[in-house]
Design a protein around this nucleic acid. Structure first.
Lengths: 240, 240
DNA sequence: AGCTAACCGGGTACGATGTACGCAACTGCT
DNA sequence: AGCAGTTGCGTACATCGTACCCGGTTAGCT
């Protein structure tokens, strides 16, 4: 009943009484991020972090009561890396830059989307980012709800794009294969599908696809998204 | 070297020689889906599935060599639930219906997005779905790459929307709290943020937000997405 | 008909994980 | 000076995926 632990961000970093802490939440988060970046999310264990910091696993629990809290601080720490530019007045261009920054972040920390999923992130860094994001779409006649909707549209599309972008590579990595070996494993199945003749579009993909670079695909998809955004903006400011 | 196991879909269901199998991949997948639907992804273990089927855990490995393969068949089985309508010619409406069907699927199986992330799904059901999806956007002058881009735009946005839609509820469920208890835990932190005065937009959210229903938000966001799609379609078919 | 290879169900066991609990050492407050 | 609150951290436990093994079943070959 009375045992409800407060959210991680409300726990004081410095103790009132005892010896000074040797580590810090941010330091632990940074170590965890390094491990996840280098060896993948499945390599991230409390013991591994502790080993990296040359201490015992249970030490970490003085800073983060559960692994769930570790994820929380990792997320916020990573989101803190996004650099923000002040709004230029050109919403379309500002959102385009934001989209590219987000894609770079998600590619730099490939574990990020998996950890972010199903969690709502509202640490200090994320809260600060939110302010900067909203500033980009403010002043164009949109209410706060629509401002959110517009930003969410862009962010969600970027997230989805990067998910697809890294899905194959991640599948290969998880199974311990290189990309070539992984494709060698899946190719026969695709052939088998094609031979049934029931997948005409799949066949078209195989021999019509232009294999545009991911950068090009990103830019083109983003253009579509921003067209949707601009359509919405024009609805709210018919002037000029 | 020679030990590369083929992809799960290429393994024959019926054995050539031995006794007839008691279970089947689809049956195991269905059981797993039931568990994940009811008790969440973290309750899904091989032992739990086996118990549900009244057998030993190791029996499952005759059907699915790893848990990774379990995820694969679960995904495909779930995607098989999507019902498809033939294209009506009204792309916008067809995509709207598709978006609603996808949202319903993701809400019915809240584990689906977590499992789908970082895996590319190409089981038989998904391959069939793909054909139906592509048919919806075919015949409007788009090349196969652009057809994919348009579909991906819609699907990604829906996925992102539902992720946000269930994030709070999932956070509460994982921590074993009800939604009210969970909000009681987070509220003080939001208050603390507001008191710093550094989050003017957050303040606006708190006292200006209209609290539109999720259904309304979905429809409005989707409208924006489809505006982007229509802009692209018009580029390719200037006639009519 | 009998043999054998291939396959089944499933028990035991192992290494890894998150973390509850406890204990000695240290430090600020009274 | 002494106590209360804190630190780092070792031990221990339940749970997980799954490697390995075994005895029974069956299809095809001789």
């Amino acid at each position: 009943m009375s045992e409800e632990t407060p959210i991680i961000w409300m726990r004081p970093e410095k103790p009132a009484r005892g010896p000074a802490p040797t580590y810090s939440r941010r330091q632990i988060a940074a170590t965890a991020i390094k491990i996840a970046d280098e060896d993948g999310l499945e390599a991230l264990s409390m013991r591994r972090i502790a080993a990296e910091l040359d201490t015992g696993a249970m030490t970490l629990y003085r800073y983060l009561p559960t692994k769930e809290d570790l994820y929380t601080v990792m997320l916020d720490e990573a989101y803190g890396e996004i650099e923000h530019r002040p709004p230029t007045g050109d919403v379309r261009e500002d959102l385009r830059v934001l989209a590219h920054a987000r894609r770079a972040l998600l590619l730099r920390h490939r574990w990020l989307m998996a950890v972010a999923l199903g969690r709502q992130i509202f640490g200090p860094n994320m809260a600060r980012s939110n302010e900067k994001y909203l500033a980009l779409v403010d002043g164009h006649g949109l209410g706060i709800d629509d401002m959110f909707a517009v930003l969410a549209l862009v962010q969600r599309w970027v997230t989805g794009f990067v998910q697809d972008e890294i899905a194959a590579a991640e599948g290969a990595r998880r199974s311990g294969l290189d990309l070539e070996g992984w494709q060698r494993r899946t190719a026969p199945y695709v052939v088998q599908l094609l031979e049934t003749g029931e997948f005409p579009y799949l066949a078209r993909v195989v021999d019509e696809a232009e294999h545009r670079s991911l950068d090009v695909q990103f830019e083109e998809g983003l253009a579509m998204v921003l067209d949707g955004v601009e359509a919405r903006l024009k609805l709210c400011s018919p002037k000029e």
